[in-house]
Simulated scan of single mutants.
Amino acid sequence: MPGSPESTDRSARVVVAVPPHLRAQFFTAEVWRELERAARLTVIDDHADRAAVAAALPGARALITSWRAPRVDAELLSHADRLELVAHTGSAVAPYVTEDVFRRGILVTQAGDEMARPVAEVALAFTLSLLHRIQRFDHALRGGRDWAAASEAPPRHEIHGSDIGVIGASRTGRAYIRLVRAMGARVRVTDPFLSDADAEALGVESVPLETLLSGSRIVAVHAPVTEETHRMIGAGQLALMPDGAGLVNTARSWLVDEDALLAELTTGRLDAAIDVFDAEPLPVGHPFRSLPNVLLTPHQAAGSVECRQRLGTSAVNEVLRLLAGRPPVHAVTADALVRLR
C-alpha cells in the first residue's frame, strides 16, 4: 500500500515522465490518488521528449521515470533546481541517470525487487517447456507435420531430480532457485560473490562455470550486466553443455553470444528459451523464429499485471517517503552505473 500522505509536503511538485499506456499499467487508481494528494503533479505523456522533461523540471522535487525516458545528465540537471529524487519504475538505472546525478546528492531508486518473482516464474515455465520439449511439439504441429512425425522429439525429463544450473544468484536467480528446488530439482550455482553460507542457505552447490555447464540439463542465466559478464556464454561454453540440454535466458542478451547460440541451436543439439535479444524488436526474418528447438517471447518476462502495478507502487512510495522526510527503501549508488543495461 502507498505510504500515508498526511505528513507529506503538499506544496511539492513531482514530474511523472511515464507515457499513458504505462501509467495505466503501473498506477492503480488508489496509488495515483495517493500521489495526487501528496504533491502537485506534472505529467508528461511524451516521456521520451527531452525538451518536455527539461521544461518540467524547474521547481520539481522528484522525477518518476520509465523505460525510454531521456537520461538525466548535466544538461537536464541544469533545469532541475530543486530535484532530490529520481524514482525509476524499472530495474537497471544506468540508461537513465549519469554520475552527475549522484554528484549532486540526488537520490536514485529502482523497483527491480518487484520483477524477481514474475521473471523467475517465466524462467520456470521455460525450464519445464524445454525439459518436456513442448516447443518442438508445438512447432511441428503448427508447421503441418503429421501426427507421428510431430510426436518425435529428443528424450524428455521431469524437473524432479534434474540437474539445473543457475548462472548468477541475483534477486531473480534466487527466486528461480526457490521455485525449481520446490519442484525437486538439484541446483548448482555459479556466482563469484555467492558465499558458502549463502549457498548452504539456498540449498545449492557452488561450482565453477565449466562444471555447471557440463553437468546441467538446464542452464538458466540470471547474472548481472557488467563488463565482466559480456558474452560470458560463447561458443566454447555452449560446447560444454550436454547433448539435449537447454539454455534459458530471461536476463539480458548481453550475457550470451547470440551468434554462437544461433550456430549451436541450428545443429539441433541444444534447445533454448529466450526472452531477450540483441535486436529488439526481433526482426521478422530472424533465424531464431524458424527453429523448432527454440521457444521465444518478446521481452515480456516481467509483464504480469501484478508486477507492473508493484513497479508503480514502489516508485510512488519512494516519492511519498521523500516528501515525508523519510529515507528511501530501494536507493542505489553510483556503483549501479557499471550495470550497462
Rank of each mutant, 00 (worst) to 15 (best):
W254F: 02
D9S: 07
V86P: 00
A334Y: 03
T190Y: 15
D163K: 14
R308D: 14
G303K: 09
V276R: 06
T333E: 08
E114Y: 10
E75W: 03
M232G: 01
T8C: 14
E121R: 09
T28C: 11
P328D: 01
D46S: 10
E280A: 05
A51C: 01
L212A: 11
H286L: 03
G236M: 04
M241A: 07
R61F: 06
A62C: 06
D163M: 09
A48S: 15
R50A: 08
W67F: 14
H79T: 10
Q135D: 14
T65L: 13
E158K: 13
S304V: 11
F26T: 05
G203R: 11
E227L: 10
D243W: 12
A149C: 04
V53R: 03
V332E: 02
P328Y: 00
E99C: 00
R50L: 10
E34L: 11
R188K: 14
A260W: 06
L213D: 06
P118M: 11
T297P: 07
P242K: 12
A48W: 14
F193C: 02
H157D: 13
T127C: 05
L238S: 04
L212D: 10
H299P: 09
R117W: 11
A38E: 06
R104W: 07
D146S: 09
I164K: 00
I233D: 03
E306A: 15
G215C: 11
L41Q: 05
D146K: 05
T172Y: 02
E84G: 04
D259I: 01
G203L: 11
L179W: 10
A336G: 00
L255P: 01
F26Q: 08
L194M: 09
A56D: 05
A175P: 07
V305H: 15
S7L: 08
A260M: 01
V256N: 03
A29P: 12
E210H: 13
R326K: 11
V225I: 12
A182N: 11
A315F: 12
E210Q: 13
V72Q: 02
A239S: 13
V332F: 02
R269P: 09
T267A: 07
P327K: 01
S4A: 12
F288N: 04
A123G: 04
A24M: 08
A69I: 02
R321W: 02
L262M: 10
A111I: 03
V16Q: 10
R33V: 13
I159P: 02
L311S: 07
H230T: 03
D46I: 00
H330K: 00
E264P: 01
V276K: 05
L128T: 07
E264V: 01
F27V: 07
A123L: 03
A52M: 03
E227H: 11
L340V: 10
L131W: 09
E158I: 01
T98P: 03
R252L: 04
P20R: 07
V166P: 02
V225M: 07
D259E: 14
R156S: 14
V248K: 00
R71E: 08
D196N: 13
I164P: 01
D113Q: 12
A251L: 06
P118T: 08
A120E: 09
R37V: 06
A223S: 05
I44R: 02
E228P: 00
G244D: 08
T267Y: 05
R23V: 12
L295H: 14
R186I: 09
M1T: 10
F193A: 10
P2Y: 10
E306R: 15
L340T: 11
E200F: 14
G285W: 05
D113K: 09
R142I: 07
P328E: 01
